[in-house]
């Protein structure tokens, strides 16, 4: 069974009388362990699509089954719980809590999963180690470089043992050398831990790290091809 199964998803925004079709009957399945790059010009619907995949938004129509769970009928809190257990987010702007140490940022998902304080500390430290940030756990985000901040964000996305990582232009704010390091880290996670990764990017050389590339245009899925490299 596919990890992500999207059927006929449509998202319509109404602005007064005009109707904006952000997504138009999207069908897609993604198997566990896949690494998918999502491309497309801005306004093509890829962000809307990622929001729906991330259970941050609901489609106007269509079905989205995530790991066997139909998300259409879930409440706000149930969606929050799904995000907590199934999905790790990585953002372009890192989105770490300021004035909060790296390890505490890492602990956040476990805080809402109701995990005890000792286990939180242990797991967060292990996650930071796995992204190569050992010894930096007590640094504040503003004491870390962009690449290091993004590593903290990746550690935070991993720490609850989520099967999926949704990365929204994770290298958009980084220089090319750091970008490559981050991408190599993601590839390693995909290869070694079998984590499914969805990656939004504008850049072809970033998309090249993925196993599969899908393209959006005007709210439609226009291409789906394996291995762009």
């Amino acid at each position: 069974m596919a990890l992500i199964d999207v059927k006929d998803i449509t998202k319509v925004y109404r602005l007064g009388d005009t109707e904006l079709r952000a997504l138009d009957t999207i069908n897609l399945t993604i198997d566990s362990g896949d690494f998918v790059a999502v491309m497309g010009p801005s306004g093509s619907g890829k962000s809307t699509f990622m929001n729906i995949l991330g259970c941050l938004d609901k489609p106007t129509s269509g079905a989205y089954v995530l790991d066997g769970i139909d998300t259409a009928r879930l409440s706000r809190d149930e969606l929050a719980s799904i995000r907590n257990k199934k999905i790790g987010f990585i953002f372009q702007g890192f989105n770490l809590l300021s004035r909060t140490t790296a390890i505490e940022n890492c602990e956040l998902p476990m805080l809402y999963a109701g995990i005890g304080v000792d286990e939180r500390g242990r797991k967060a430290l292990a996650a930071l180690k796995s992204v190569g940030l050992e010894g930096r756990q007590h640094h504040m985000p503003n004491q870390l470089s962009g690449g290091q901040q993004q590593r903290v964000a990746i550690a935070r996305a991993l720490v609850n043992g989520t099967p999926i990582i949704l990365a929204d232009e994770p290298t958009g704010n980084l220089d090319s050398k750091t970008s490559v390091e981050i991408m190599e880290l993601l590839v390693k996670l995909n290869n070694d831990s079998g984590i499914t990764i969805m990656l939004v990017t504008h850049e072809h050389d970033i998309a090249a790290f993925a196993k599969r590339t899908i393209r959006f245009r005007d709210g439609r899925l226009v291409s789906d091809e394996a291995g762009t490299k």
Binding site: A80, L97, Y112
Partner: peptide, 16 residues
């Protein structure tokens, strides 16, 4: 607001 958004994205529920 942004902090609240981050907390919600990573799984904070309404009552959290």
């Amino acid at each position: 607001t942004r902090e609240i958004g981050i907390r919600m994205a990573i799984g904070a529920k309404t009552w959290d």
